[in-house]
Computed example of a mutant assay.
Amino acid sequence: MNHTTVTTSGAAAYAPESKLRLLWKAMYAHRVSYLFLAPFLVFFALFTIIPVLTSIGLSFTYYNILESPRFIGLGNYRLLFVDDDIFLTAIGNTLKFAVVTGPVGYIMAFLLAWLISQIPNRYRFLYTFCFYTPAITSAVAMTVVWTYLFSGDRYGMINNWLLQSGILNEPWLWLQDVKTIMPVLILVSLWMSMGIGFLAFLAGLQNVPRDLYEAGAIDGVRYRWQELWYITIPSVKPQLLFGAVMQVVFSLQVFDVSVQLVGIPSPLYAGHTVMTHLFDYAFIRFEMGYASSIAVVLFFIMVGLNRFIFNILGHKE
């Protein structure tokens, strides 16, 4: 019995050493590849992994920058979900915003990319530039235009049109009325949503082999929507996955548009999102421990939604 125990323990102790030795051998054999990966891995760890772990650690403390962090356990999370009504409002606004801008922006980006891929090559750059420009223009510059459009006086462009056409009898306070704040934010965000996902869709669509369409025509595919459904979409699944992930991140991190258009805090917190709530506690009240708990909740919401997307669009292999 003792001999068996010793043998089993020795095997158990030897197995991890063998695996570790094999790992080191594999790393040494591919040392040049790891050397090229080293700069990315160092910066990824320095600016992504370490900040995330630090934020998770600070979420269990009371930290106001002036004093050393003081461990309080789950106090921040209890306050967040039980006593902070504004945070629950922010969660509701963010999810409402994401439910609309996520799918609509995603479908709109793909359809526009598909339409652009159907036109001659010499015109594609012009259309791509026109649709992509709002995404690379600063939020401040874009909100100046939208603030003029939705100005609450008679000189606002939309109010002027509606008053002249007789639809309104008096100017509407688009950016102060709680009924219209969220629709305006959604509209502006959709206009600015043609970002990296749009370019990924366009690149993927242009690289679909023409042989597939010719084979489809032989097999009975006659219409464009049949090509889109049976050939194009299955061929660009990696780009669809990437675009979906980017759209989720964009939808849940809405901040600049809300702050620039309706301020912080917005009227009756109608445009208050998780990111504006985080900014309020982190850089206005300087309660970094509480702000870290908000960031952790947002992080796990993003991770959960991204895993859901991977289960739908990701390849099992």
Rank of each mutant, 00 (worst) to 15 (best):
L268W: 05
E67G: 04
S266I: 08
I107R: 06
I49L: 13
H30I: 08
R285K: 11
K316G: 07
G92P: 06
D280S: 07
L205C: 03
T48G: 03
I186K: 09
Y34N: 09
N76H: 01
Y132D: 06
P238G: 10
I196R: 15
P267A: 07
L23S: 15
G10E: 10
D84C: 04
Q260Y: 09
M182T: 08
I294N: 02
M142C: 07
Y223N: 08
D177C: 05
L35G: 14
F283V: 07
L80M: 12
L278Y: 13
L305K: 00
A291K: 00
I218T: 04
G152P: 07
G105H: 01
M192D: 11
Q206Y: 02
M288H: 00
L58Q: 11
V100K: 03
P39I: 00
M157Q: 08
G263I: 11
T128K: 14
T101G: 01
A203Y: 03
V52G: 01
V178I: 14
H315P: 10
S151I: 04
G156T: 03
I56T: 06
K25N: 13
S258Q: 11
T180I: 05
A217C: 02
Q164T: 14
N121I: 13
L88G: 03
V236K: 05
T128I: 12
P209S: 13
T137Q: 07
G73D: 04
G166R: 03
K25D: 10
T101N: 07
A45E: 06
L74R: 02
T5K: 10
Q247G: 03
D280P: 02
G195V: 01
G73S: 06
N311R: 14
A135L: 02
L115R: 12
S235H: 13
H272K: 13
I158V: 14
G263M: 06
S292K: 01
S138V: 09
P103M: 08
Q226N: 11
P69W: 07
L228D: 00
H3R: 15
L187A: 13
A45R: 06
E170L: 05
Y63L: 03
A139V: 15
A270K: 10
Y63C: 05
L168A: 05
G92I: 13
Y14M: 14
T94D: 00
D280R: 09
Y28K: 15
M27T: 14
L46Q: 04
W161S: 11
S9H: 11
N121S: 13
E214S: 11
G75K: 09
V99F: 13
R124W: 01
D219T: 11
N76A: 00
T54R: 15
V140R: 04
M288K: 00
T61Q: 14
S292Y: 03
M182E: 08
V6S: 15
L53K: 03
L37V: 00
V184F: 02
L252Y: 10
F242T: 13
Y281I: 04
N207E: 06
T7R: 15
F40D: 03
F44K: 09
F250C: 10
T276R: 10
E17H: 13
T143K: 04
N306C: 12
E317K: 14
P120L: 04
M157V: 10
